[in-house]
Computed example of a mutant assay.
Amino acid sequence: MENKPKSVELFEYSTLDFECQHQFDAFSQAAAPICDLKKPRSINNGFRAKFSAFDLGGIDIIDWEVDPTNSERTNDQIRKTDLDNWAIWFVRSGRFYNEYNDRSVKAKTGDLILVSHAQPWKSRWEGQSFVSIGLNRDKFSWMAPSLDEANRSVLNGSLTGLLRTFISTLVDEAHKISEDQKQILSRSFSNLLAASLEPTADNLHNATPALNASRLTIAREFIRKNLARPELNVDFICKSLGMSRRTLYNVFEEHGGVAKYIKTVRLQACYKALSDETDHRFVSTIAYQHGFTNMSLFSRQFKEQYSFSPTEAHECSTADHVGQNTSSPTLLDHLCRSTSRMVPASDDAA
């Protein structure tokens, strides 16, 4: 029997495991090695804080949901702890403020902010959802000048959107990551970050798998949300996403092309609706609502895909007759195939 790859270890924490009156103190103790927290004026209903953390080998990723609070990292904490890294904070919802001496930076929903833990700071979290990515200073010494230059600033380069997508997908798919994939993901993130901070030709080349994986994620989500639009095609996608035709063709090459991917996703969505016993819509209605305008063509393509007609799918449950391999590859799948064929830019980035 083939052994299932060991999943990456996820460490989860929640103040909901404590009584209301002890929740803030419990979280303060958990955060003590990094910063001191200021107790909110009113916490009669408790203090909600939870996070899920995992390590990619020198890259610590934490997905947070925390009630608004103030925090401070002091010189005393810097001396007492060995935490010497940069941290990227991705504000998924809410706002984040950070200040050091006379320099301050504000980040809103969707922003990425870079902060060095080697210096003291004061921060305020306003909102609920953040992702922090700790970058070990030794592992990332090869891009230290770029990281130091971006310290206490909101990242706003041309590739920031793709970096944001990569981080979001990485967090959302954390439970799917295996120990064997950690090195690939670590290298991919490192190369993408380097290209975002300094988009040189070499950095862009090394980041190609991560860039294309992020573009694929964005394009697939756009297609999913626009299946009902008959005009969904290459030109429509490129114009809407600001992506060139060449780039779009490249990221969908392994799927047999953009048009084939759209057709496959549409057929999958129609099959799901048609085989749902609680869905009483007409076959034609389901087809039209998923972007098919020619019923004859739809019926022929559906039968080619599933070996039975749309009417047969609608009249009886045929789930057992359909192959299970209908889901699209994840970002992890894409990276593991493409990145494994590339040589890392440097040993430090591996």
Rank of each mutant, 00 (worst) to 15 (best):
E9H: 07
Q21H: 12
Q23K: 08
S42Q: 12
I43P: 02
N44S: 14
N45Q: 13
F47Y: 13
A53H: 10
F54I: 05
G57K: 00
I59S: 05
D63S: 10
N75R: 09
I78H: 05
R95V: 01
N101I: 04
S104Q: 09
G110T: 05
P120H: 05
K122W: 05
E126F: 13
V131Y: 05
V131E: 06
I133E: 03
L135C: 02
N136D: 15
R137P: 00
K139R: 15
A144V: 02
L147Y: 04
N151D: 15
S153R: 11
Q181K: 11
Q183L: 11
I184W: 01
I184M: 12
L193S: 03
L193D: 00
D202F: 03
H205F: 08
H205Q: 13
N206W: 07
R215A: 11
I218M: 11
F222T: 08
R224S: 14
N226I: 05
D235F: 09
R246V: 11
R246T: 14
R246Y: 10
Y249I: 11
F252M: 09
R266F: 02
S275P: 04
R281Q: 13
S284A: 15
S284D: 15
L297N: 13
S299G: 07
F302P: 03
S317I: 07
S327A: 11
V343S: 05
